[in-house]
Write a protein that binds this DNA or RNA. Structure first.
Length: 412
RNA sequence: GCGGAUGUAGCUCAGUUGGUUAGAGCGCUGGUUUGUGGUACCAGAUGUCGAGAGUUCGAGUCCCUUCAUCCGCCCCA
């Protein structure tokens, strides 16, 4: 075995990094369940078309980032690059239109063949929510509020900016696209090479280009808001009003367009400046056409997903494990008693570390290393009198207690 | 996919214009007498110097290739 390293862009997760990710997911679950969301688990791979057809032929995810493979039956399959398409597919496949609204959350690995950087892996974890069957702005408000509360509970709201925009309905989007393309075509010589390409492929993306020459052109570009029709305008206003009512701070960014084709109306991103170029930590939007596109009828949808690794990298403090109780036998003839006591304490709900070898000094050192709060010391003297020495490892104080009272003492 | 930087013990890093047995701190192991840790002191182990080829009497140091990480672009969570 020569290649012991993990494949590019993948990581072994353990220790503090793993604990932080668990904390992010557990926090997300507890928040989202209060809003009535239930967990769904869909397969980690799907027929390639599920992603190819629905994310948009022009998106980079589809054109160059998917892990596609053929199985032994000759089917083209793809490791999921994002969560929404799979959940919507499951929604349609299981006929869930009968019982709207449907609220799901999920978490698990996603795969994208990209160049790795900090906060960007080829296998990464997303936690996301999907709310299907609600057309009113109330859904947008609730879903954003949920995202906001989630980051608040993680202690991150202070370093996060909420950016929001509206792409409007299909009509508004088409109107704007035409206007924008017309404008940009006049200035095509001033655009960067990348943007010249995007002009035919995905012109909206030019709006958030980081190239200076693009920025100058964009500064005078037609504004998205001016292309929104009355319906779209009212919808967006209602969403913003709701956020105001809930005291959620946001910034309207009319350059914000999302990468995937299925978005309409509200789109939003929660970003930080602490992760370099990978500042987007949670993002989502409304996707009213997606269910119909998969043959599930006219059902509205909205959702978001967050990068669990990115969020956990923002968590400052090390996540502490619960402090165990160390059970320490002294001498050979006390081992069996120690085994029994450790077992009883565990049955009583305590977290117990048995040191497996060494003299008393060694075992106390190990107790210290696992951050034990108390040590139950069992020597032949103690065993002979049915007692144990209970030592507080913070203060160093110790006392003799009867074995019968041990659990009561530890609970105090 | 494009541009740039980096790669030396478990971790963070030092290593002088190429010159003999490659270093530090932290961590780890053992000890400072037999049943008392977290502090202190003493001792010890650990590296195919990312991998491969090359130049040279001699390469951790120079050239090339490759792999990986980091930064930026693209894109995105």
């Amino acid at each position: 075995m020569e290649k012991v390293q993990s494949v590019r862009g993948t990581y072994d997760l353990f220790g503090d990094a793993k604990r932080k990710m668990k904390k992010v997911i557990a926090t997300g679950e507890s928040v989202v369940e209060k809003y009535g969301f239930e967990e769904i688990e869909t397969p980690i791979f799907e027929f390639t078309e599920v992603f190819a057809r629905n994310l948009g032929d022009t998106s980079d995810i589809v054109t160059k980032e998917m892990y596609c493979f053929e199985d032994k039956g000759g089917e083209s399959l793809t490791l999921r690059p994002e969560g929404t398409a799979g959940v919507v597919r499951a929604f349609v496949a299981n006929g869930m239109q009968q019982n709207l609204p449907v609220k799901f959350y999920y978490h698990g690995p996603m795969f994208r063949y990209e160049r790795p950087q900090k906060g960007r892996q080829r296998q990464f974890t997303q936690f996301g929510v999907e709310l299907l069957g609600v057309e009113t702005p109330q859904a947008d408000i609730e879903v954003i509020a949920m995202a906001y509360e989630f980051l608040q509970k993680l202690g991150l709201s202070g370093q996060i900016t909420v950016e929001i925009n509206s792409l409007g309905d299909a009509e508004s989007r088409d109107t704007y696209r035409e206007k924008l393309v017309a404008y940009l075509t006049q200035h095509i010589d001033e655009l960067s090479e990348d943007s010249k390409n995007r002009l035919t492929r995905n012109p909206l993306r030019i709006l958030d280009s980081k190239e200076d020459c693009d920025k100058t052109v964009i500064a005078n570009a037609p504004r998205y808001a001016d292309s929104l029709n009355e319906n779209s305008r009212q919808f967006f206003a209602a969403v913003l009003k709701g956020l105001d009512l809930l005291d959620i701070k946001y910034r309207v960014n009319d350059r914000l367009v999302r990468g995937l084709d299925y978005y309409s109306h509200t789109v939003f991103e929660l970003t930080t400046d602490k992760l370099g170029a990978q500042g987007t930590v949670l993002a989502g939007g409304r996707y009213n056409g997606l269910v119909a596109q998969m043959g599930g009828g006219d059902v509205a949808g909205i959702g978001w997903a967050c990068g669990v690794e990115r969020l956990s990298m923002l968590l400052q403090e090390d996540t502490a494990l619960p402090r165990p109780i160390a059970v320490i036998p002294v001498g050979e003839d006390t081992q069996e008693t120690a085994l029994q006591i450790a077992h009883q304490l565990r049955l009583a709900g305590f977290s117990v570390e048995q040191s497996y070898s060494g003299n008393m000094k060694k075992r106390l050192m190990k107790a210290n290393k696992v951050n034990a709060a108390q040590a139950v010391i069992l020597g032949s003297d103690e065993v002979a009198t049915n007692t144990a020495t209970l030592k507080d490892l913070d203060s160093g104080e110790q006392k003799t207690v009867a074995l019968a009272d041990l659990i009561k003492e530890l609970q105090a």
